[in-house]
Structure formats: C-alpha cells, structure tokens
C-alpha cells in the first residue's frame, strides 16, 4: 500500500491503535519505575525521508535510541527515543548505584535500557496484536547513544529502498513527577500497513 494513498480516516485509525498500544506500554513503564506516566495524543507523520531528522527534534540532538523490529503477521520498525537526560533519570530509578561520571553508558546501563525497550515494545505489540487478532512480536532490542540523525538513518534504510516517504506514528510520554519522557515511534512497512488497517476493519 502506498503511503500517499492514505486518507484521514486511515490516519485516525492508526492513531487510535497506536494510542492503545502505547497506553499498555506506559502502564508497563509506570510499574517498572513506580511512577505514573502520561501520554500525549499520538501524531501521525507522513513526510519525506529528508525531513525525518527534524521530526525527531533535530539531527544533532543527543539521544538514546532503542530499536526493535516488529515481527510476525505484520512487519515494521519500532524506535524509542529518550533524550539523554531522560535516559539517565530512568537509569537512576532502575539501577541502585549512583551514575558514574562521564556521559558514556556502561554495559549495565545499556542492558537496563534495552530491557526497558523490550518491555515497552512487548506491551505495545501485545495490545496491537490483540486488537488485530494477529501475532506481533518484537525482535531483540539494540541501542545506540548518539546524535538523533545518526540513530535514525538506520530505521530509514528499508523505507528508502521502496520510496521517499516515511510514515511514523509518534506518541510522546512523560513521567508525572520525574523528568522522564520520550517518544515512541512505529514505522510500519508499506505492505504491513494494509495488514494493520485491514485487521482493524478500516476500509481500504
């Protein structure tokens, strides 16, 4: 399915399913850190690949990117972007000891953040899968701590092979007390988009 063939109705449906997915992910995160998490209304971005770094808050913003593939009955990419400060705050809640000096992440911290990504993506895909009556599973998460532009170009590779547009469903989340926040992005493959919309009963 071509991204530019999508109607408002399609986009609204995508927002709605993503909202349900992220709500489950937020509950999981909230249980993990023992604090409430609030969600913003999801946004759907349909844009040229060239414009994507801007949507991530600028190519040079320093972020932790946790990347997973959506596998199973529909395929796509999931990217969880945590601003540096937010990732460090999250770590201070998850790991007992004080954060060491310097801003590179230790093996333990990387592992903890990947696990967070895994929990978020699993909760998201479980909810999405239940809604679609399909099986969706996340791949093993990988992590990169770098400039946003460098982190996301990897996600654009598959999309770039088949076209010049990227479709991203973005949901921002915030901790109620702590300065923990981030963005959850789902980038469905053009082919899988049809499967998702079809499964939730939206006319194509």
């Amino acid at each position: 399915m071509k991204f530019d063939a999508l109607t408002e109705e399609h986009l609204d449906a995508l927002k709605e399913v993503s909202n349900i997915g992220v709500a489950h992910a937020a509950t999981a995160l909230s249980q993990l850190i023992g604090k409430g998490i609030t969600l913003q209304v999801p946004k759907v971005h349909l844009m040229k690949i060239t414009e994507v770094p801007e949507a991530f808050g600028g190519a040079e913003r320093i972020v932790v990117g946790i990347y997973l593939q959506m596998l199973g009955d529909a395929r796509g990419n999931i990217l969880i972007v945590l601003p540096r400060e937010s990732a460090l705050k999250l770590l201070s809640r998850l790991l007992p000891r004080e954060k060491s000096e310097g801003s590179l992440l230790t093996e333990l911290e990387i592992s903890a953040l990947k696990e967070v990504g895994n929990i978020l993506a699993s909760a998201y895909l479980n909810a999405l899968g239940a809604l679609m009556r399909k099986t969706l599973i996340p791949s093993v998460p990988v992590l990169s701590f770098d400039m946003a532009g460098a982190v996301i170009d990897y996600v654009l590779i598959e999309l770039g092979e088949v076209g010049d547009l990227a479709l991203m469903v973005e949901t921002e989340f915030f901790g109620e007390e702590e300065k923990i926040g981030g963005q959850f992005f789902l980038l469905p493959d053009p082919e899988s988009l049809r499967i998702i919309l079809d499964a939730i009963g939206v006319k194509l």
Partner: peptide, 19 residues
C-alpha cells in the same frame, strides 16, 4: 538525508548526524 548541495566560496556546506 538523500540530498546534495553545490556551493561556492565562502559558503560552508553542513550535514548533521551521519550514521
């Protein structure tokens, strides 16, 4: 991303966040 630009002195060409 996926662009190119041409420029003459004294212009500076920049590109950000190459992964």
């Amino acid at each position: 991303i996926s662009e190119f630009k041409i420029a003459s002195a004294p212009t500076i060409l920049m590109t950000y966040g190459l992964g």
